[in-house]
Simulated assay, not measured.
Amino acid sequence: MPKIEETCEVTINGKVFRDWDSVTATASINPFVRMVTLTVTEKVGANGAVGQSLQIKTGDAATVKLAGQLFASGHVHERQVAYDANNHSVRVTFASQVLKAVEQSIPLKDGEFKGYSFQAIANKVLGPLGIALKALNPPSGWDKAFKYVNIEPGETIFNLLSRLSKYRGIRLHDDKDGNIIARGSVDKKPTAEFVEGRNILSASCLAQNPRDTAQEVVGQQRGNDNSTPAQNRGAYSGKADANGSNYSTDKQIQADIPADSDDLKQAAGYYNLLSLGQQVIVRIVYQGWLLSSGKLPEVADYTSIDSPMLLLKTSNLQIAEVTFTQDQAGTRTTLIAQSWITSPGSFETSKPEQTAAQKATSTPLTPSAPVVTGPGGLAGPV
């Protein structure tokens, strides 16, 4: 029997399955769902009998443990079978329970939320699926109610929560229990330490030239009897800045819900995370699945990397993706670490200057005579 540190254990309907030919298990910020793919080849016995693989069916509830620690809770998502006269081969993929939220459209008739907080909206749309939303160190004000939220036709549960999360300064990912985590700040103490020549099998690093980046999100408000459409457009804005080196980019994005300055500030920070998150990307491969702490690495945890060959020594990178593998080459873990996964930069909020159209609706103007092209190509007043 293999060592517990190198064992993938799947429990389905109370039965435990082990002894796989290959294992690939992935958790990531994006894509969102934990997936585990296993293969097994079994000898055909007397009367065509085979072993454990025939007892695994799509849709079965399942939990997956790696090195004796729970990694994923969900169901059998796919089952692929091939056979000949001597062998029976099966490839099985398990998916986290949150896959249901990624694929299912929102089963609501009204299509609108008024005065609901993010948690309340999540409870409403996730409840029928048996999935919970759990907040982890959320920022102050994350539970503020949204004035109005309209559901897009055919919008999935995850798409709704994802687009609302940027207005509350949180990032979403799943956990080992099949819950959705709304994550704010993260403990910056590294949970893993990798040193060249000690515990790194292979590594690579992509570094981009950092730049001054300004993201501005402009919002609008619903109209009323005392305002005009032009006045409601661009009523508020939020801005996020990140210092770079020698050049800058400025982007403006239109909000997709009625939002105030604080909401737009959080959204601007979210877009800055997307913009800056790939300035440094490091890929680390190490032996085994467990860290020196005896724990499995987790998405969004900070890691320390010291590699002269990569010109890199930092403790400011977070795990964006972790993949555990086991095959004939051995048992290994691949980490993708990035900066700017969950920690936003500086924010500013403002009420932007009125556009010409907005000023025209609130300031009396004396119209001048129009200018047209006259006879002979001359321009003059009518």
Rank of each mutant, 00 (worst) to 15 (best):
E5P: 05
E6S: 11
C8K: 00
T11P: 01
T11V: 11
D21M: 05
V23F: 00
A25T: 07
T26Q: 07
S28G: 09
M35L: 13
M35F: 01
T37G: 11
T37W: 01
T37N: 08
T39A: 12
E42F: 04
K43F: 05
G45F: 03
N47C: 07
V50R: 02
I56M: 15
T58S: 12
T58D: 08
D60P: 05
A61R: 07
K65E: 14
A67T: 08
Q69A: 13
A72G: 05
G74W: 00
V76E: 08
V76Q: 07
R79H: 06
V81H: 06
V81L: 11
N87M: 10
H88V: 02
R91C: 11
T93V: 12
A95Y: 02
V98W: 02
L99F: 04
I106C: 10
E112K: 13
E112H: 03
F113V: 09
F113W: 02
V125W: 01
G127V: 05
L129N: 04
L129F: 05
A132C: 09
S140A: 15
G141C: 15
K144N: 14
F146Q: 06
E152F: 10
P153H: 12
P153D: 14
K166F: 01
Y167M: 10
G169Q: 05
L172F: 02
A182L: 08
G184A: 12
G184S: 11
G184F: 01
K189C: 12
T191K: 09
A192S: 14
A192M: 07
S204C: 13
L206G: 14
A207Y: 05
P210T: 09
P210R: 05
R211I: 09
A214I: 08
Q221R: 12
N224K: 04
D225T: 12
R233T: 14
R233P: 06
A235K: 02
A235R: 02
S237C: 12
G238S: 11
K239I: 15
D241V: 14
N246F: 04
D250T: 13
Q254C: 10
Q254G: 07
A255M: 06
I257K: 00
A259S: 11
S261V: 13
D262C: 09
K265D: 07
Q266A: 09
A268V: 06
G269M: 01
Y270M: 03
Y270F: 11
N272V: 11
N272A: 14
L273G: 04
Q279I: 11
V282L: 06
I284E: 02
I284A: 01
G294E: 05
P297W: 00
V299P: 02
A300L: 06
T303P: 04
P308N: 07
L311V: 09
L312D: 03
N316V: 11
F324L: 06
F324R: 00
F324V: 05
Q326W: 05
Q328W: 02
T331W: 01
R332L: 10
T334G: 04
T334W: 01
Q338G: 07
Q338D: 08
W340C: 07
I341E: 02
T342Q: 03
G345Q: 00
T349R: 06
T349G: 15
P364C: 15
S368Q: 11
S368G: 14
P375L: 15
G377P: 04
A379T: 15
G380Q: 06
G380M: 10
G380P: 01
